[in-house]
């Protein structure tokens, strides 16, 4: 009985998962672009840019995700109307920006000062040095820590449920209310779906890390 319904409803779960993945892709992409910018600003920028970066990170790492979602959808949304999906991308994306900025900043600082000096001594500008010497190395070193961010943001997409984004968790709750019970089975399936996406994503990221590893350096081994 339950399984018949589950099979029948599975396309809805898949659709919910697809929305969740889109949300994840959107917020991670936003966090990547803005986090990278913020990390470069806070490492190489004027003190005022550094201050801005620090304040931004403190704020968005210090507020619960669910509060951010409510704040953007009901609060900011009142001034600038936006769909639940857009509000979720922005709210979670800003938070991800703060976390990703920290990942990238650590990786940038791990690039040897001597290489930066060598690039400058060859006549390369600050910007060219960042682009051609610092970031190619820093981004490689960010992949490992970035897998954490991927995992935690995937799970955070389920919170978009509270502002009405019809993603996987919300689809599941619809099915549960239709079935009147069987919560365990439905949410077990949903849990498995999150788990699989998480594993696949991490496996892909580790494969990327191995592919981009610089020969001659100790790799991360056979983690995947």
């Amino acid at each position: 009985m339950v399984f018949d319904t589950l099979v029948a409803e599975f396309p809805y779960l898949l659709h919910g998962l697809w929305i969740g993945i889109q949300l994840l892709a959107g917020l991670l992409a936003m966090g990547l672009v803005m986090g990278l910018t913020l990390s470069v600003m806070s490492t190489f920028g004027h003190w005022s840019l550094r201050l801005f970066a620090v304040i931004f990170e403190r704020i968005f790492r210090g507020i619960p995700e669910i509060v951010l979602l409510l704040l953007f959808f009901y609060g900011v949304g009142e001034l600038i109307p936006m769909s639940p999906f857009v509000a979720a991308v922005i709210a979670l994306g800003l938070r991800s920006t703060a976390y990703q900025a920290q990942i990238f900043r650590g990786a940038i600082q791990s690039v040897a000062d001597g290489e930066v000096m060598a690039a400058r001594a060859l006549g390369m500008s600050r910007l060219a040095t960042i682009r051609l010497v610092v970031l190619p190395q820093a981004l490689r070193r960010s992949i490992g820590p970035w897998t954490n961010e991927y995992s935690s943001e995937l799970k955070a997409t389920s919170l978009a449920y509270v502002i009405g984004v019809v993603e996987l968790t919300r689809q599941a709750s619809y099915i549960v209310s239709n079935l009147q019970g069987n919560t365990l089975t439905v949410f077990a399936v949903v849990a498995a779906m999150y788990f699989i996406v998480n594993r696949l994503g991490n496996a892909g990221l580790y494969a990327l890390e191995r592919k981009l590893a610089i020969p001659g350096f100790e790799g991360r081994g056979s983690e995947s």
Partner: peptide
């Protein structure tokens, strides 16, 4: 600076680039 070569004690080659690209970059 482009007209003044600088050779460092610690070499400071670009770790992520092959030798040929180290010499081509600048």
């Amino acid at each position: 600076r482009a007209q003044i070569g600088f050779v460092f004690q610690e070499f400071n080659l670009f770790t992520h680039l092959r030798v040929l690209d180290n010499v081509r970059l600048a």
